[in-house]
Every structure is written in C-alpha cells, then in structure tokens.
Design a protein around this nucleic acid. Structure first.
Length: 220
DNA sequence: ATCCCGAGGG
DNA sequence: CCCTCTGGAT
C-alpha cells in the first residue's frame, strides 16, 4: 500500500473528527466543577474511575475543602472518606493534600496554567496536566490517554506508542483549535465504539476512513 | 473474572 | 519495561 501523503492524512484527520462530532454532538468534559481548583481535583480523582462516580463525591468534597488552603491544612485521613468510592483513594488523598501544599507554598494557592508547572504537582502527570490546561485556557495540549493512543494508532495518525510522540503527531496533524475537542471525541469514541479488544466497526461512523477497519486487537 | 479517561516507583 | 495501587462497572 502506498504511503499516505501528510496532506491527505491531515484532511482525513479533519474528516474523522467532523464525523465523530456529528455522531456525538453532545461531546464535552463530563466532570462537574466551578473553579480551577475543583477542575484539578476532579481530574485527579477521575483516574481509573468514571466521571459519573467522581461527580457523585465532589459536592461534599468541595464543600468541606473549598480552597487549596483547606486541603493543605488537612490530614490525609480526613480527605480519604470523601473519595473512597473512586478507587486508589489513599494515593489520591495523599496527592491532593501534597499538591495543595505545593500550590499554597509556591503558587499563591492558585492553579497554574502552565503544563510543565502542573506536572510538578504530586499526582499530576502529563495527561492530567494537559486536560487541566486546555480547560483553563492555559497551554495548548493534546492529552494522550489509553483511548487516544489506541485510536491514533488504528486510524494511522501515529506509528508510535510513546504518549509524548503520539501527542506530537496529533498536534502536527491538527490545527490547535481542534485539539481540545479532538481529544474528547477520540476518548468518547474509544469508550463507546472503538473498544480495545474488539472494536465495533460495523457501527463505527469513521470505519471507511480507518486503515484498521475490521482488525481486532490493539497492537502496534 | 477482568478491565479501567493514570501516576509513580523499581 | 514492569509493577502496584483501588473500587466500580460489566
């Protein structure tokens, strides 16, 4: 098979996103938050856990810990019961307190808009920092989670596995104004249709644009 | 039983 | 690269 030109790949990528958006017009971040800190906390909690479950616990959590200073002055065991049903609760509680202490000590209690700075916070890795950033209007980012990684590979948008390289490929492929929604669309599509084990190509809105149509398994 | 919208550590 | 941490969803 002839190698696809980068220009035609870009056009195909845009077409993929537009079809996905038509199929999922309601796409958006599902976490409930009202302040930058609430967003940061909600995204940290969302690891290995559904947004729905996070939204169930955050009202009480946010009321008890209204700002960074509240977490910073709390003991980890005070935070744990609020987030217990979200999984990984010990690590998350510990990280929330430690991150809040760093925010208070080094950032005036405010959530940084810089991805590099966000990544210095305990419990905040590249993906979490990227999501927080794009939703706060901070640094541009195309956060790569397991869904984005898998779909980018299947769709032929990257040949890499390393999330950093996948992100670079996606950023090169799409104009930055599409990164936020593009990330969200790929995640939703991965969850709803393009499953890791057995993708539902028969009802996939972008099957005709996909080089791996009908191919099972994740792998590069 | 098995997988998951991750991060950190060995 | 591999492992662990966790409960919930399926």
């Amino acid at each position: 098979m002839a190698r696809e030109s980068s220009q035609s790949k870009r056009l195909r990528a845009i077409e993929v996103l537009e079809r996905l958006e038509r199929a999922m017009p309601d796409v958006r971040i599902e976490l409930d938050y009202r302040t930058p800190l609430e967003l940061l906390v909600a995204v940290i909690l969302s690891a290995q856990c559904t947004d729905k479950r996070v939204n169930l616990v955050t009202p009480a959590l946010f009321q008890r810990f209204p700002d960074a200073a509240a977490y910073a002055s709390a003991r980890v065991e005070e935070v744990e019961p609020f987030i217990q049903s979200c999984g990984l609760y010990r690590a998350k509680a510990k990280n929330l307190v430690a991150a809040a202490r760093a925010l208070v000590a080094e950032h005036g209690g405010e959530v940084p808009r810089s991805r590099a700075v966000l990544e210095t916070l305990p419990g905040v890795g590249r993906k979490t920092a990227g999501v927080v950033c794009i939703h706060l209007g901070g640094d541009d980012a195309f956060p790569v989670d397991t869904h984005v990684k898998r779909l980018a590979f299947r769709l032929g948008f990257t040949r890499h596995v390393d999330p950093d390289k996948v992100e670079m490929d996606m950023q090169a492929l799409l104009p930055s104004e599409r990164w936020m929604k593009g990330h969200q669309l790929l995640v939703w599509h991965g969850r709803r249709t393009c499953f890791a084990r057995s993708p539902a190509c028969e009802r996939c809105p972008v099957a005709e644009l996909c080089p791996k149509k009908g191919v099972k398994g994740v792998a590069p």
